[in-house]
């Protein structure tokens, strides 16, 4: 049965019992829906309102601008499109690398041995650290002077020190490294739990057929994991599109605005500069639409490839 679509049976005759059953079911999901309505959907509506004006927090609806804010950020001024490009670059770098590494790690640590448990715990530990703390640590590691660990390492190999966070080519890569470090354990854990649910007989059968471990991985493990991989792909993509805290703390937008992401654009326009709340609203709506498109595309495009038991 597909994890993501529902199996709804056709409605039967309206008996008193079925009405009571329906009401009870709705009572179970109502709190969740209410919370979402107030804290996720209402803000979206509010943002649409805000995006049609130019104002600040005291006076959000100062001057009416219609869709001018949208035209501003999409066409007239390059800043938003640059942040969009930066974010897209980040996503394209981060998702494949993190996903494949997590898969490899989870298969590697599959067997229930002490060493694997220990390694698993260690790999997950970075996830526990608050993003601000990680950002402090890693900006120290990537410090441009010889005092930085990264520079110290490459000098051992004879290269010159490099300004990691100050050069637009490498700044985003550094942020990606930090985020991979922080979240590999988390994703590997999810894959691990899925791996444990693959029946042992499948592997035994493969061994009987004397299939090599690599072949087993591609022909058996991957397809059996495909629901989880699919799910992780979607969540990773949408989450990395929303990246904010780590970039802000590590590079503050990087040299110029080469590492500024869309959420940073939204936050800065809402909180740092005056009179730009409408721009933040417009950017938020554009971001939401993009995320919806990505999720829909993922569903349509990849669901066919997903193999269900």
């Amino acid at each position: 049965m597909s994890d993501l679509t529902l199996n709804t049976k056709p409605a039967r005759r309206l008996t008193r019992k079925s009405v009571a059953n329906n009401l009870f079911s709705w009572a179970l999901v109502l709190p969740a829906i209410l919370f979402l309505a107030v804290f996720t959907f209402y803000p979206l509506v509010n943002l649409i309102q805000l995006s049609l004006y130019r104002g600040n927090i005291t006076n959000p609806y100062k001057t009416f601008r219609g869709i001018e804010n949208y035209i501003d950020i999409l066409v007239k001024r390059p800043q938003f499109m640059t942040t969009l490009k930066n974010t897209a670059l980040y996503v394209v770098m981060y998702v494949p690398i993190c996903l494949s590494l997590s898969l490899i790690f989870s298969v590697w640590l599959q067997k229930a041995r002490k060493m694997n448990n220990f390694a698993q715990t260690c790999f997950f530990a970075p996830h526990l650290v608050a993003t601000i703390s990680s950002a402090f640590m890693w900006s120290w590691i990537f410090s441009p002077e010889s005092s930085g660990i990264a520079n110290g390492l490459i000098r051992l190999f004879g290269f010159n020190t490099h300004n990691w966070l100050g050069s637009s080519a490498t700044a985003m890569v550094c942020v990606m490294i930090m985020n991979t470090w922080a979240s590999i354990g988390h994703h590997a854990l999810i894959f691990l739990s899925a791996l444990k649910s693959i029946p042992g007989e499948v592997y035994e059968a493969a061994e009987l057929d004397s299939s090599s471990s690599i072949k087993t991985f591609f022909k058996i493990t991957l397809p059996m994991l495909s629901p989880q991989i699919f799910l992780m792909l979607i969540t990773m993509t949408t989450n990395s599109f929303k990246i904010f805290e780590s970039v802000r703390q590590m590079t503050g937008g990087g040299p110029g605005i080469s590492t500024k992401t869309v959420c940073m654009f939204i936050y800065d326009n809402a909180f740092e500069t005056n009179n730009t709340l409408g721009l933040a609203g417009a950017a938020s709506i554009v971001l939401t639409i993009i995320l919806m498109l990505i999720t829909l595309l993922d569903f349509k495009g990849l669901e066919k490839k997903v193999h269900y038991q």
Partner: peptide
Amino acid sequence: EYKTNVQNIVGELVTE
């Protein structure tokens, strides 16, 4: 807003 825009461009100029 003006200051932030100018500061960003100056940053690009001097850093890279």
